[in-house]
Design a protein around this nucleic acid. Structure first.
Lengths: 211, 211
DNA sequence: TTCATATCTTGACCTAAATCAATTATTTCT
DNA sequence: AGAAATAATTGATTTAGGTCAAGATATGAA
């Protein structure tokens, strides 16, 4: 994938159809590739870039003083992350690690901020994007505090069901378990139990939601 | 408080200093007062208003199928809530209840949306506001999944310490406990334990953070 | 002020899910 | 292909914090 294609897919996600921003965006962004396991930034790092995922997957996570970790989100193809640096200048409030070999578009947040200010169209797109993100996090807060592990796992699967009840597990299970706030052991046990209860069927990396 | 003062304090929070929006905003908003315990809206309700708290406190919460409840946020004087309806049209994704007798400014979201579209200044303010909210929720997700009840309670107190180590508990303890995702019993026990350990001292509604 | 209602505290008990430990599978690298 | 490393499963054990119950305080209405 070349830079032009990258920018086009970024604009497509923002739902901006004409090409007049291509040159502008080209000047404030660059392609970067990261190998699986590479850290992009850690919480507290100074940094100025927001990212758009062209290929691969990046885990956004937080760690506490005891070394425990929670995955806030896994950004995959077509998703933005760290866009918060547009407004909380200077330091990243989360950490990010590539969990697959990934190709990313790194966008300079200061200059992107100016673009947003100059173009109400961008501002509205970002507002819509932030609203979705707020909704996602609100739901996550709810699940983590009042839904049990089984409900959270079913929630995860249901959100990925496109209507046919078939969900392909593309990420390592330990990443999924961390993203629903559950230990890998518990994840494994619940999956087994759901299968025994007849709620799902498991064939390799494909899970079918029954009933 | 009259309508003009209400609008002025709303604009002050948005950090907009001139008065040119006063008339516009007047046309799309109204003062409403709610008694303690009154529901403003429930999750799933159709609704078009976002709110600004002039006086009192409003609990924003979510409930699951088993009737368990988590407080997402308690909006107090000078805070906006339900601003998400600006972008997720039609239905509220959370519920809201006045937990004190409250005076609110209800703002029509459709017409506010148009104002934001017309005035990049508004758009940027809302983006900044959303960014803060995203940060708050991200921190909350982290606390709920990897911090224990004691750390969450200390986090709550520390965020309210303005530097002198003195925190006044203005809200009912059961509201605070729900907002940190803990049962009232556990809340009570941890407070006692912290006091015994010498980490805090409690004098009525005032808690002093020692160390 | 007094009665009624709601909130808070404390104790006893229980349970969901984490942790620890040991295999077993699956990737990845040479 | 084979070895080494990483991920996933399963069992045994522990524990943080929820629930239930009872009593103590506090709040508010008449």
């Amino acid at each position: 994938m070349n830079k032009k294609e990258a920018l086009e897919s970024f604009l497509a996600v923002l739902d901006i159809k004409d090409d007049r921003f291509l040159k502008d965006l080209n000047a404030i962004s660059m392609l970067v590739s990261k190998r699986k396991g590479e850290i992009l930034f850690l919480e507290g790092d100074k940094g100025e870039d927001l990212y758009f995922v062209l290929k691969g997957a990046v885990k956004i996570f937080k760690t506490n003083s005891e070394g425990k970790e929670i995955t806030i989100n896994i950004a995959q193809e077509g998703e933005l992350f760290a866009e918060i640096v547009l407004f909380l200048k200077n330091t990243y409030p989360v950490s990010a690690m590539a969990i697959e070999n990934s190709l990313l578009l790194a966008i300079d947040s200061k200059r992107m901020f100016d673009k947003i200010k100059e173009n109400p169209e961008f501002a509205m797109k970002f507002l819509g994007l932030f609203a979705k993100r707020l909704n996602y996090l609100t739901e996550k807060v709810k699940e983590l505090s009042i839904d049990d592990a089984k409900e959270r796992l079913l929630g995860y699967l249901n959100r990925r069901d496109k209507g046919d009840g078939v969900v392909e597990i593309k990420l390592p299970k330990k990443e999924i378990s961390s993203s629903i706030g559950v230990s890998p052991e518990t994840f494994s046990r619940i999956l087994k139990k759901l299968s025994e209860e007849g709620a799902i069927s498991i064939e390799g990396k494909v899970i079918k939601l029954l009933k």
